[in-house]
Design a protein around this nucleic acid. Structure first.
Length: 419
RNA sequence: GGAGAGUUGCCGGAGUGGUUGAACGGGACGGUCUCGAAAACCGUUGUAUCUUUACGGGUACCCAGGGUUCGAAUCCCUGACUCUCCGCCA
């Protein structure tokens, strides 16, 4: 959420940001609501102030056993007016709050301006596209040949997009998750969190999924709970409504969770194999930092995510997302795209974002700085990484001429773990 | 799911419907003292919002939302959460 005071004094900047992000938000309506609210607040305060002082007089007179009927009569009427204006003020605050939730975060100045993904900037490439002495197969063929996946039965049980990993495939998936998670814990200093997979409405609003993305999420009507689309949601809200100390910062958490996405509106797009799923596994990194350090933290988290791909020896590239491709809540985002030699394309496996104080403001996460001032902190998160497309890249990169799959060296200890 | 108890400031813990932003204790911070520290003593210890160039001032906030009242931390209703007991269950 953007501070209303900031909006008030930076109308043009906010307007531009909304346009560049292809968002719809009625800024003028918000300014009017704000105007109205402040007027009501002013009136309410004055009436209350008067009421308080007269009430004190009544109290004093009663104590002195004097007649207070004049005051009581006046206050009886005033109370009615206060009740009305109080209701109006509450409504105004509610409306403004609701409207403010539809304003996206402002992109940082470094973010390339552009309508869609074609304006994203490639920051760098790492490694090389692998060469094969044979025609590389796509991951689905490799998976099927080796008995790693059973997508038809997943579809039977739940629907398309709910994969079943079978036998060695399941173990491979689990090895990947364990490896990535431990890597972040041991080499990058993150602390592990195991979190709820179903969260309430307030939590979803805190990180910015609501109100915009309600259609993209699985919802349990009976309890008004949502299945998380990413661990970012429960992990970032870990500190909702709390005030931390600057001494506690930065806080760095990593969490493995399944993620659930309805992918509404993307039917028929990239559906082959594991490219786009309703349920998938992901290790997520989240940081809570002092505002001054969030830019550096973003670069570190990007490096943390890259380290995984490098450990796997996979060719990838880093993109800086343009304004039109930035998420609603993000100020600046890097995407990691891994090369899938069978499908001959780059696939997004990670998104690393700096949200500034946007989420902290929504979720009410603050900290007390060195001067003792209470401020909103900054939040960041990054996938480290999402498994399905990583699995695609691994299967396709480490396939052998006979269609078998060679477990990458770094995964061997995790895959061949002995009791 | 049924029955009961509770939710006050950083923490513990008072609080009769009328100077209660909230006693008291602890912690933390600043100061005096000291070579330094401890102890002791003195002081400080909110958040939001409106207004003001500023100093300051107003208002709200004792889990949340309603209600009663001239006036509510204090009375009533609803909800959330925590704890105890019973039932059910991985």
């Amino acid at each position: 959420m953007i501070d209303i005071k900031f909006i008030r004094s930076n109308v043009d900047a906010v307007r531009t940001a909304i346009r560049n992000k292809n968002e719809k938000a009625d800024l003028d309506a918000i300014l009017t609501l704000d105007e109205n609210r402040r007027k009501l607040q002013f009136d309410f305060d004055n009436l209350k102030s008067h009421q308080n002082s007269v009430s004190a007089t009544i109290a004093a007179k009663k104590k002195a056993k004097e007649d207070a009927r004049v005051e009581l009569a006046e206050m009886s009427k005033a109370a009615e007016a206060i009740k009305q204006i109080s209701a109006a003020l509450n409504a105004a605050n509610f409306e403004l709050e609701k409207a403010l939730l539809t304003i996206p975060n402002l992109p940082q100045p470094e973010v390339p301006v552009g309508l869609d993904e074609s304006f994203n900037e490639v920051m760098k490439y790492w490694g090389e596209k692998p060469n094969f002495a044979f025609e590389p197969k796509d991951h689905l063929e490799i998976a099927n040949q080796n008995g790693f996946l059973d997508l038809p039965r997943g579809a039977k049980i739940s629907g398309s997009g709910f994969p079943i990993y079978t036998g060695k495939g399941a173990k491979l998936e689990r090895s990947i998750i364990n490896f990535m998670l431990e890597y972040h814990l041991q080499k990058h200093g993150y602390e592990e969190l195991m979190v709820p997979l179903a969260v309430n409405r307030k939590t979803m609003t805190g990180t910015g999924q609501l109100p915009k993305l309600e259609e993209d999420m699985y919802h349990i009507d009976l309890d008004d709970l949502f299945l998380i689309p990413t661990a970012e949601v429960p992990v970032t809200n870990f500190y909702a409504d709390e005030v931390l100390s600057y001494k506690d910062l930065p806080k760095c958490y990593a969490a493995y969770t399944p993620c659930f996405r309805r992918e509404a509106g993307s039917y028929g797009k990239d559906t082959k194999g594991l490219q786009r799923l309703h349920q998938f596994n992901k290790v997520e990194m989240v940081r809570f930092v002092e505002p001054e350090t969030s830019a550096t933290a973003l670069e570190e988290m990007l490096a943390n995510a890259e380290a995984i791909l490098q450990a796997f020896g996979l060719h990838y590239r880093v993109l800086s997302l343009c304004t039109g491709d930035l998420s609603f809540a993000s100020q600046r985002t890097y995407d990691l795209e891994v090369w899938a030699p069978g499908m001959q394309k780059y696939l997004e496996v990670s998104s690393v974002s700096n949200f500034g104080e946007f989420q902290a403001r929504r979720a009410n996460i603050r900290y007390k700085d060195k001067e003792g001032k209470v401020r909103h902190l900054h939040t960041l998160n990054g996938s480290g990484l999402a498994t399905p497309r990583l699995m695609i890249a691994l299967l396709e990169t480490y396939q052998q001429a006979d269609g078998s799959f060679r477990i990458p060296a770094v995964l061997q200890p995790w895959f061949n773990i002995k009791l």
